[in-house]
Design a protein around this nucleic acid. Structure first.
Length: 280
DNA sequence: CCAAGGCCTGAATG
DNA sequence: ACATTCAGGCCTT
């Protein structure tokens, strides 16, 4: 069962892409939109509420992807070290709210806020003698008052959360369409959402809308590029402007190829582990 | 087009 | 203890 391309659940969950996951003994439980997912010690995933899901992106040809992104010793090392690290296919609405909250924050705090949001606005579900709260539907957050949202510890992001939810309800943003269209088109659209800039947009695209060429450039990835890739991408300024972000992303796609999002995930995981940063 | 400053919060740091 | 810094950005001047 444990072939070379099987999934390493712990590494994948602890790589900054999901937040509402809890380990119970050897089982992981996670909230994914209107569903609860359970992954057992053998890496078997099950939808508790019996919905269809491709959370593991089982159509990704990891052999080909790894071959494609392995352009240098640094990626090769990260791929070898964190073999089995995979990108998940998340519920887009939950993913969008998660990364709007992530701006200027950290993993523990993001998780904290999301738990409060689920508890306050999500539906309570009891299964297997355990209590869960689903992620709220867009309507619920769109109709909530900013003050109520603020009680979840999200601060200045509260109005973004409300407005972003409204855009989903009013179908100004259509996730189904964004899943199908190309990267550039999807990014242009999703950046119209308040609280969504370049970095947050790329996270949403990569983790929930099937855009493997998205390469979120946060402070960590900038540090990594400066440290290991100063020959390929020279970064002059401290703060990356809109234009610089675009140019840099083009260079990155040219270098790592169409699956560069996976390269990002491996490199990010490696460097954060090097610095002993905490996960969930 | 770019630079600077403000923004909520709480864990980490001193 | 208590103050300050900093953390996986975005938006407005």
């Amino acid at each position: 069962m444990k072939d070379k391309f099987s999934i390493n659940i712990d590494n994948s969950i602890n790589s900054g892409q999901v937040f509402l996951w809890e380990k119970n003994g050897t089982d992981w439980y996670g909230i994914n939109g209107q569903d609860i997912l359970k992954i057992n010690e053998n890496g078997i995933i099950k939808s508790i509420l019996n919905s269809k899901t491709n959370f593991f992106r089982k159509n990704d040809n990891m052999q080909e992807i790894i071959k494609s992104i392995s352009k240098d010793e640094t990626v090769k090392k990260s791929v070898k070290q964190y073999e089995g690290l995979r990108i998940f296919k998340q519920d887009p609405f939950q993913c969008m709210i998660s990364f709007i909250i992530s701006s200027n924050s950290n993993i523990q705090k993001i998780k904290n806020s999301l738990e409060k949001i689920s508890k306050k606005f999500g539906k309570k579900v009891k299964i297997q003698n355990k209590e869960f709260f689903l992620f709220p539907k867009p309507e619920k957050l769109a109709n909530a008052s900013i003050e109520e949202i603020k009680k979840c510890g999200v601060g200045y992001r509260a109005p973004f959360i409300k407005q972003a939810s409204k855009m989903i309800v009013l179908k100004k943003i259509n996730f189904k369409y964004l899943e199908k269209c190309d990267y550039q088109e999807a990014k242009k659209n999703i950046c119209l959402i308040p609280g969504v800039g370049n970095k947050v947009a790329d996270c949403i695209l990569l983790f929930s809308l099937n855009k493997l060429e998205a390469f979120p450039l946060d402070t960590w990835m900038i540090k990594i590029l400066e440290k290991y890739y100063s020959n390929q991408f020279n970064i002059e300024t401290k703060t990356i402007t809109e234009k610089q972000y675009q140019i840099l992303h083009e260079k990155i796609v040219n270098y790592f190829g169409p699956y560069c999002g996976y390269a990002q995930q491996f490199l990010f995981k490696m460097e954060r582990e090097n610095y002993n940063k905490k996960w969930l």
